[in-house]
């Protein structure tokens, strides 16, 4: 089994992907689950009958008209869950990408430049990791203000140190490889070597970590929203907020809590299964056979 870094064309990448999925059953399940949810989140709002902020009667029962009934505002719960998928995934994706970008830059700089940069970055990482991440996100929200858009920043910032640590370790490993030495011998610039030779070869672990971070980001965002440290409960549909509304309206909102919780659970499960599978496949330490 070869790792994707050896492959350059999209075709070979696709073939590698298909082989991977066909022999790793949990990853296949995870892939199907997360793509299904992604599809519903992206295209669902286009085919939905109701908009998430159309006001119907309050607490209408579930049925053909309203698949999951309506909530205390008269909003269609199913419409809000589908739209909420878009919002939730978008927040999780943005915060993950933020962590990834910040972490990769810091980690690459630390690993590649070494010296005092390395020392500074790694002490910073150690420092950030001396707070439990959820607490740190809460404090970040306290500083930034409890708003939905600030959740991206808070969760994204808190996730960055893990990426930095991982990328640094990878860069340190790749740096000593022959092709990097060769590039250096050819007189290539440091920046060019970093971007053309070192970082592309750190790609695999970043993808693995990114997939797994999607799952934890969804959980963190929903958790912060549930605590009231996110957006307003009704203005934008988000799974954690939908769950919170239902929780406050128990027992009438029980179905709403169940549906929103299930949505979060299945999405996180999908990303975790996929991430674990990729890790098994790509991480040289845990690779099978």
């Amino acid at each position: 089994m070869s790792s994707p870094s050896d492959l350059t064309t999209g075709r070979r990448l696709l073939r590698w992907w298909l082989t991977f999925l066909s022999h790793h059953r949990p990853a296949l399940v995870g892939f199907v689950l997360s793509s299904l949810i992604l599809l519903v989140a992206v295209f669902g709002p286009l085919v939905l009958e109701h908009a998430p902020d159309t006001v119907f009667g309050r607490f209408e029962p579930q049925g053909a008209e309203h698949l999951l009934g309506t909530d205390s505002q008269g909003y269609d719960v199913w419409a809000r869950i589908v739209h909420g998928g878009r919002v939730t995934l978008w927040i999780a994706l943005s915060s993950m990408l933020l962590s990834l970008t910040l972490g990769t830059i810091a980690g690459a700089a630390a690993g590649y430049l070494g010296g005092w940069v390395d020392l500074l970055v790694m002490r910073g990482v150690d420092f950030a990791m001396s707070f439990p991440s959820f607490l740190l996100a809460m404090v970040a929200i306290a500083i930034l203000g409890a708003r939905l858009e600030n959740l991206v920043l808070a969760v994204g910032l808190v996730g960055a140190p893990i990426f930095a640590r991982q990328v640094r370790a990878e860069v340190l490993r790749v740096k000593t490889q022959e092709y990097v030495t060769a590039a250096r011998a050819l007189g290539f610039g440091r920046v060019r070597i970093l971007f053309r030779h070192v970082l592309p070869n750190c790609f695999a672990p970043i993808v693995v970590l990114g997939t797994l971070t999607m799952g934890s980001a969804i959980l963190d965002v929903a958790g912060l929203n549930f605590l009231g440290l996110g957006g307003d409960p009704y203005t934008t549909p988000e799974w954690g907020l939908i769950l919170k509304q239902g929780w406050e309206k128990r027992p009438l909102g029980n179905l709403q809590v169940t549906a929103a919780g299930l949505a979060i659970f299945l999405t996180v499960l999908g990303f975790n299964l996929l991430g674990d599978g990729l890790k098994d496949e790509l991480d040289p330490r845990t690779r099978r056979r």
Binding site: D53, V55, S72, Q73, D232, P233, Y234, T235
Partner: peptide
Amino acid sequence: PAPSAIADTIRN
């Protein structure tokens, strides 16, 4: 009794 829900109605 339900501040955020009432605020949402006024918002609309």
